[in-house]
Simulated assay, not measured.
Amino acid sequence: MSVKMLTYTNQNTPIHRLTGASKLLFFVLWALTAMIIYDTRCLLAMFVIAVVIFAVSRVPFKQYSFVLYLILIFFGLNQIAIFLFSPLYGVELYGTRHDIVHLFAWYTLTWEQLFYQFNVALKYAVVVPIGLLFLLVTDPSEFAASLNRIGVSYKVAYSVAIALRYIPDIQQDFQNISFSAQARGIDISRKEKFGKRLKNVVSILLPLILTSVERIEKISTAMELRGFGRGKKRTWYRARPLRKGDYIAIAMILIITVACLVITFADGSRFYNIFK
């Protein structure tokens, strides 16, 4: 685990130079737009923009690869579940039926169902990259300051910042405990069978949880001794004013949101129907 996952790394890119407030606003509007619309044209355009933004950020793949694989597994299970529980939902949605092949019982694969699930896949492809990017390019302290700026209590904002900063500490603790376990003959490498390896990993989780609880207790005690939470307001060391790049990013997401909503609801429905 030489490369820390889902941790902020400061790089000199246009994405990293944006303030936490503009990144937060961009992500919230982006996610809401993607969740509302089902227009394939807009989702494809947003996917291309997301890929371009991710490329500009120059975030190493190793920093988010494990989480991405977990999301892909969940995505695959979600697609299977959609078809198993609603194999003809696309037919109901688009009002037409074009069969591809009859599988078994009442399960028939249709073009309408494929198109609907393709749109669901696009939603994942649109939201996930920007969501991961938001975590990877936003300094936790600056993110906390941004939350407080938009009205979130500074206590909650500071808790979020601590949680984000704690991610690399958890990874380091897991690595140390893992090395200690391996020194005692507990193998969690790929040389061991999957079932045995899973059992060995679970045996590592208990000391990891205990270590985390102990660390949380120390942090909470230190904060209490320093009088954290007594004042109604606080200042932020990492807070930054909006700059030209931030206004461009905000204007960009506003244009994308308005354009997608106008295009989507131009015909009175949020579902783009290619079968009319």
Results as ranks from 00 to 15, higher is better:
156 V>A: 03
2 S>W: 11
147 L>M: 10
1 M>K: 10
9 T>P: 00
269 S>R: 15
125 A>N: 06
48 V>Q: 05
211 T>R: 01
271 F>Q: 14
273 N>L: 01
174 F>M: 07
71 I>N: 15
41 R>N: 06
106 W>P: 09
147 L>A: 01
271 F>A: 11
154 Y>F: 07
86 S>R: 13
19 T>F: 02
111 W>V: 07
229 G>L: 06
240 R>H: 15
233 K>F: 13
117 Q>W: 12
126 V>H: 10
42 C>I: 10
206 L>A: 12
9 T>K: 15
192 E>L: 12
48 V>C: 02
24 L>S: 09
157 A>I: 00
109 L>F: 07
271 F>C: 03
258 V>C: 04
103 L>P: 08
24 L>T: 12
202 V>N: 12
201 V>S: 04
46 M>A: 05
155 K>G: 00
29 L>Q: 11
252 M>N: 04
55 A>I: 04
267 D>E: 13
225 L>E: 06
229 G>R: 11
104 F>T: 13
234 R>P: 00
89 Y>T: 03
5 M>D: 07
238 R>Q: 09
107 Y>H: 15
92 E>R: 10
28 V>K: 10
120 V>F: 09
185 G>Y: 02
210 L>K: 12
18 L>C: 05
247 Y>F: 12
58 R>S: 06
144 A>C: 01
119 N>L: 04
97 R>W: 01
204 I>D: 03
87 P>L: 02
104 F>K: 14
157 A>P: 00
122 L>V: 01
52 V>P: 00
220 S>F: 01
29 L>P: 06
276 K>L: 05
81 A>H: 10
127 V>A: 10
149 R>W: 02
273 N>G: 04
214 E>F: 02
41 R>A: 07
